[in-house]
Design a protein around this nucleic acid. Structure first.
Lengths: 251, 251
DNA sequence: CCCTCACCTTGATCGAAGTCAAGGAGGCCA
DNA sequence: TGGCCTCCTTGACTTCGATCAAGGTGAGGG
């Protein structure tokens, strides 16, 4: 949820106590001494935008936290149809203790920095450190809620509602990120291409494009360039999502 | 995953050590002494088929394990469109420690027996008993995988593939339940109405009905009555699901 | 400066699934 | 035994989003 205002290179991030995701990641509940032990087994990796961090089916010998940037989890059917099943933001966790083989592709959407832990040491650390397991449970339950919200969207919403929902979610996230209120004249850049949005929403990229145009023509949103969005009236946008008024939504 | 061969009434189930879900539920890893403490705060409830156990938005002052029967988790949009977001089988967990308000409706599909724990005592027990949290984490991660598999189905599969996938999953579950091999001439009863299947698959009940008929006409399945299904050739069915050969699937 | 390539938009057409409507089958109760 | 129910099937028609196809836009590199 928290992005770096200015990108750090791995060597700028030696110390967990200064870590930008310290209070949100899997290590959030750790005490200083626990953090010190984590520090010993961690290492940073960076990936440029577009690169695949993990291929579905590959052995994974590490788990990791996203420190900065955005990555996606995607599944693919044998004939090439793909569905995004998760969006990884800073502090989100990659991998699963106790599992050897990655079930999804993990792809960097922007440049990404991750804080990795070799799986075995992390697992044994988890046994000794309930704080890690507790936090991971909390995060996993949140992700499960988000996945279920997304199932409702995929199964029952119209294309227009899907786009409106996605824009609302990104707007909310951006607002919370920059500590601005979620009201009117919110502005932000879409971090996803039309194709990635299509993969997220279970649509084609043409439909995504058409529905964005339609929302623009209805003045629910306005566009500057292809990616920069302004929301003149947030309630107006929420009306288009199909959710009931408050509409608790995704991570 | 394990159902009772013969239904117990609540009073038949006084003792955790004899519990049919002892080795699969949230208490699976507990030692005898931990079990004894759980025993003190548990109580059973039964619900007849069709009854709602929990309404979305209600306060929930308990968490629970499904002991026998099947229940569904569903979400509803304000105009009435509904999407099933989870299927609760024996040993599955209901509720979330640390949360007060239920986010989904929980409805009994068959007669259901649940083993309840008042939320506060359960939460404080969780703090002292890492085994419970560990097991809950494992179960939640499994559910998250299942939800993501389901997202792929909802977003990218055709109606025919959705139906084939659902039948395959129920067949697999039934086979594992009865310790029969998943090969040919599998037979079982669909535990869901056409409408419930539609809610699960993001379809209408008419489309479900038509696709079941179509699969019957293609001799991928055969029907006896409306609910009893025979699968002459399991590989044939798998070919219709759109998944790649092995196709790791849901709970 | 212009070319190229990735990304996006728009149009025309098609088809899968939704909608509306009618009726069948079986279980349950009076 | 007959008359509900609820659950399911089938048909006719409509519609939303996919598909196929053609171009537009803008950033970066030669």
């Amino acid at each position: 949820m928290i992005a770096l205002a200015h990108a750090h290179s791995p060597t700028d991030l030696p110390d967990c106590t200064d870590c930008p995701i310290r209070h949100r990641a899997v290590c959030a509940r750790c005490e200083t001494d626990e953090l010190e032990r984590l520090e010993e087994i961690k290492y940073y990796r960076t990936y440029p935008a577009g690169q695949t961090l993990v291929w579905a089916g590959d052995r994974m010998d590490f788990v990791a936290s996203v420190v900065s940037g955005i990555a996606t989890l995607t599944q693919t059917l044998e004939d090439g149809r793909t569905q995004m099943v998760g969006l990884l933001l800073p502090s989100d966790f990659v991998g699963r203790p106790g599992r050897d083989v990655a079930p999804y592709d993990v792809v960097a959407t922007t440049d990404v920095v991750v804080c990795c832990f070799r799986k075995r040491p992390f697992e044994s650390m988890m046994e000794r450190t309930p704080h890690i397991g507790q936090r991971l449970l909390e995060m996993t339950l949140d992700e499960l809620d988000a996945a279920r919200e997304w199932m409702l969207l995929l199964g029952r919403k119209t294309a227009r509602e899907k786009i409106a929902s996605l824009i609302a979610i990104i707007a909310r996230r951006d607002a919370s990120l920059n500590l601005r209120p979620t009201d009117d004249n919110i502005q932000f850049d879409l971090p996803l291409t039309r194709e990635a949005m299509a993969d997220y929403l279970g649509l084609t990229l043409e439909t995504v494009s058409r529905q964005i145009t339609a929302l623009r023509k209805s003045e629910v949103i306005s566009l500057t360039g292809k990616r920069h969005i302004t929301i003149p009236n947030f309630d107006r946008l929420m009306d288009e999502t199909g959710d009931d008024s408050d509409g608790g939504f995704l991570a």
